[in-house]
């Protein structure tokens, strides 16, 4: 019992630390930017709804903060779920090609100029459709009737990513200069989203999926032993895998369509969290969700401030930091996938 209790206490402490860091990072994010607002001024600014500082805070920085948190949390959650389903640390929305499919869906809509009377929700719908179709392809090609062949699935995912990026190149080559600019800017990953509805959709969607996935924590824990063992422990493996796959496609589609391609969050954060809190999904899901949000908030602040007044695409920054952290983790002595 002592070890289990120790692990639990340690996990709760880590969760609390992440939460406190999240709060600090959020305040840092709200105060950083072209117009400097000191933390001492914050209470004063909040009491002056007519001031410009207030508008900057509430209309520009708060939505961006919420978007950064929800996209980071959603990508990390998708990664940890997919890794749980397939018991493989290299699986995440990008390696499975789901992000590639989502980007192709979005690019197709931008280039073709169709609107389908969906208004604001056109890109998220396109992203989800692309993600879901890719998921379907990977699933059909990579899965047998019940048990998954992970190598086949990963290779299928990588190939689909290649095909998608080739098709994306093709779309770029035939697109007008205006849509060309839109696509290129969007593929670099940006958290600048002027539309409130989309931000609300992203925040609501990520929180909703986070809550729903908690119905599957025991299934994810049982899947650590493999699909057959999980089935013998009373888990309906097919329903679990399909539902979780659809949920992660939904999240990835949303993230890609709203924020563009932001890589590595789903790979690095779950890996890091496994080291910190262990592999029990009852804690790991929350840790990955909060940790992913924290990571992207920090990356966004750095992206905005490192070469100010210019701004780095946040996707570039997550790619570099994420990749380096991952290489560092792999180069350490004990390289073990915590199942």
């Amino acid at each position: 019992m002592q070890k289990m209790q120790f692990m639990r206490i340690r996990s709760v402490v880590v969760l609390l630390l992440i939460f406190v860091s999240l709060l600090i990072a959020s305040v840092w994010s709200l105060l950083s930017g072209d117009i400097e607002i000191g933390w001492r001024d914050l209470p004063r600014v909040l009491q002056q709804p007519e001031s410009m500082d207030y508008s900057v805070l509430m209309q520009l920085r708060l939505p961006r903060l919420l978007l950064a948190f929800s996209v980071g949390a959603a990508l990390s959650l998708s990664g940890v779920i997919l890794q749980g389903i397939y018991r493989n640390p290299l699986v995440e929305p990008f390696t499975l090609g789901i992000s590639g499919g989502a980007s192709l869906g979005v690019a197709l809509v931008i280039v073709s100029g169709v609107t389908l009377s969906l208004g604001t929700f056109l890109l998220p719908v396109a992203g989800f459709t692309g993600a879901f179709l890719t998921f379907f392809l990977v699933y059909v090609i990579g899965l047998g009737k019940r048990s998954s062949n992970i190598n086949r699935m990963l290779l299928t995912g990588v190939m689909i990513s290649f095909v998608c990026s080739s098709l994306l190149m093709f779309l770029l080559s035939i697109s007008t200069s205006e849509s060309l600019h839109n696509i290129i800017f969007w593929t670099m990953g940006s958290l600048e989203e002027p539309n409130d509805k989309l931000i609300k959709l992203m925040v609501g969607g990520s929180i909703l999926v986070f809550v729903i996935t908690h119905f599957f924590v025991h299934a994810l824990n049982a899947l650590r032993l493999g699909e057959d063992e999980a089935a013998h422990l009373g888990i309906n493996v097919l329903v679990t895998v399909r539902t979780l796959f659809i949920l992660t496609s939904l999240l990835t589609g949303l993230c890609v369509s709203i924020a563009g391609i932001i890589g590595f969050v789903g790979l690095v954060i779950p890996h890091l969290m496994r080291k910190l809190v262990g592999s029990d999904y009852r804690i790991l899901l929350s840790a990955s969700f909060l940790g992913g949000g924290l990571f992207l908030i920090v990356c966004d602040v750095l992206a905005r401030t490192l070469i100010a007044p210019n701004e780095l695409p946040v996707g570039v920054l997550t790619g570099i930091t994420g990749g380096l952290v991952f290489i560092f983790l792999l180069s350490r002595k004990e390289v073990k996938w915590e199942k």
């Binding site: 019992m1 070890k3 289990m4 025991h218 824990n221 049982a222 650590r224 032993l225 493999g226 057959d228 063992e229 013998h232 422990l233 009373g234 888990i235 262990g278 592999s279 029990d280 073990k336 915590e338 199942k339």
Partner: peptide, 25 residues
């Protein structure tokens, strides 16, 4: 019905955590 397979999954769980999975049903 409980099933014990030939190969035991390679997992970082402690023995108690592993045994407790039997309570999932």
């Amino acid at each position: 019905i409980a099933v014990v397979n030939q190969r035991i999954a390679d997992t970082s769980m402690t023995v108690l955590e592993y045994v407790l999975l039997g309570r999932i049903p």
